[in-house]
């Protein structure tokens, strides 16, 4: 006998500060492109209780010192550290996921064994767009938007490096987590979102 059981996919986007609505739209688009047959929800997260039942969490770009301070202030630090689902982190989110960062005011979550340099390319005038080759991603290079972006200067043995530039590593995977220096939520290309969701093995 086979039973049909709809899978509830719940994705929370940390909504303390930054590029929140774009992440929600990008995940909705990715889920839509990945097919039907299950129910899904993508919503904002501001308090520890909002995390319960989530399969995935997105930590958006924004100002890493600001988001870090707000994570502490809202008692989100331990709940995010002990979160059992996958985390999709971009830009400031990548800084927060690291073990070490070049700024003591950022209280990193220490979830991916890597050292991160903030604003590694410089100030806003040095922000750039580039077509970036990404390991194992079908469909050609990814059009990446780097905005006062960080890089990882070194990553631990278990961390899978997906892409690097002269300045350092700009995309990694580690277990269920993905961390990116750039902003896939700004370009309408959901291949990285889809890859992240597939890795979670929560979709039928």
């Amino acid at each position: 006998m086979r039973c049909y059981k709809p899978v509830d996919v719940k994705i929370g986007v940390l909504a303390l500060q930054g590029n929140v609505s774009e992440h929600i739209e990008a995940f909705l688009l990715a889920l839509n492109r990945m097919g039907q047959g299950y129910s899904s929800e993508v919503f904002e997260i501001r308090h520890p209780a909002d995390l319960s039942g989530c399969n995935a969490l997105a930590i958006p770009g924004g100002e890493s010192t600001t988001i870090s301070r707000l994570i502490d202030k809202n008692y989100m630090y331990e709940p995010i550290r002990s979160f059992s689902g996958g985390i999709f982190a971009t830009c400031a989110g990548m800084v927060l996921m690291a073990t070490r960062v070049d700024d003591t005011r950022v209280h990193t979550l220490d979830l991916i064994d890597m050292t991160v340099d903030r604003n590694a390319f410089g100030r806003q005038r040095e922000s750039f767009e580039a077509d970036l080759p990404i390991k194992g991603l079908d469909g050609g290079p990814f059009h990446a938007i780097f905005i006062r972006a960080p890089v990882a200067t070194c990553a631990g043995a278990g961390v899978s490096v997906l892409s690097r530039m002269d300045q350092g590593i700009v995309a990694v995977e580690y277990g269920n987590h993905m961390a990116l220096s750039f902003h896939p939520e700004l370009v309408g290309d959901t291949r990285l979102h889809e890859r992240f969701l597939k890795n979670l093995r929560i979709l039928p």
């Binding site: 590029n19 100002e63 806003q124 750039f128 938007i145 905005i147 700004l186």
Partner: peptide, 25 residues
């Protein structure tokens, strides 16, 4: 990646930067 393959100062970078300030003071 060569420097000439990078594009600077585009509309998307400008609006993207502005968007990162959302929810902020």
């Amino acid at each position: 990646m060569k420097l000439e393959e990078l594009r600077f100062g585009t509309e998307l970078l400008k609006r993207g930067f502005a968007s990162m300030q959302k929810g902020g003071v």
